[in-house]
Design a protein around this nucleic acid. Structure first.
Lengths: 143, 143
DNA sequence: TTTAAATATACCATATCGGTAGATTTTTTG
DNA sequence: CAAAAAATCTACCGATATGGTATATTTAAA
């Protein structure tokens, strides 16, 4: 019942990129400062190579935009207040469900027939966890 | 972010033993029917050898009482409504805290000085999860 | 005294996790 | 156009935790 270290890293990474966010003013559009992976790694403390791997997931998940080539790098694809801890965790780990019953390819060994009597409770708890995480957005970590 | 299969098993096991529970009446004291590991394993679908291992943890955790020798076996040490899913999970997995910062021997690689800015959120979520699980007691699974 | 149970301890195989490496593609810039 | 700097793709690797098993021992009832 722990987040993986990868999720932990992903949260740090989003948080680091979010530091460069400027809210839109009347004169200018909203903008995320572009950062390259090396800087992200240095500031977050996540090993460079592993950062790159995680960043790819975050790009695929639609939280981050990437740009190749010289002057390339990463930007947030959304405002920090539109990105939740849940978004990040589920991109790295898949959808949260505390129990295995739900997982694909899981064969329950309970010999009893009929639906598992624990399933509903587990589902409820999973939903509560997801709600808690959905309420935490990255604007609150900007310093 | 999943319970281990061991926790899942432990929940089943407690539930199986709880089936034999009789609430105290005026004439009789409360009583849990004594069951041997083989029966528990058969009914729960948890491999015998692994059941024994889990049962030892549950005994050590104070949820179950064991008796050696012929006619030995296992009983609940408390009424089902006094045993929560949280109790069982924390006996098998240790205290729930979703993030590693708190774990013994974890060295955070965040280069920033000062307390981790994510810690409080994680602590809050962990507390919510624990509350959810504490509210689910085994009386509700008795059929 | 025999038998049926739990206990202690130790071991093992596999999957997942955390992390790394090399070759390739894309883009900017000189 | 060429070179450099960035991301991407694919693949691999080692350690650890997890799920599971085996053996020998202890305890208690019949």
């Amino acid at each position: 019942m722990q987040l993986t270290l990868e999720s932990d890293y992903a949260i740090r990474i989003i948080s680091v990129i979010a530091e460069g966010w400027n809210d839109p003013s009347e004169s200018e559009a909203a903008a995320s400062v572009r950062m390259d992976a090396k800087s992200i790694s240095d500031i977050s403390g996540v090993p460079l190579r592993f950062s790159l791997k995680i960043l790819r997931k975050l790009v695929a998940g639609g939280l981050v935009r990437s740009y190749k080539g010289t002057r390339g790098g990463y930007e947030l694809a959304k405002a920090p207040n539109q990105i939740s801890v849940l978004d990040v965790v589920e991109i790295t780990e898949g959808k949260i469900h505390i129990n295995r019953c739900i997982s694909k390819d899981f064969v329950c060994t309970r010999p009893a027939e009929g639906p598992c009597k624990f399933k509903k409770c587990f589902d409820d708890i999973s939903a509560e966890i997801r709600n808690s995480m959905r309420n935490i957005t990255f604007d609150r970590f900007i310093e």
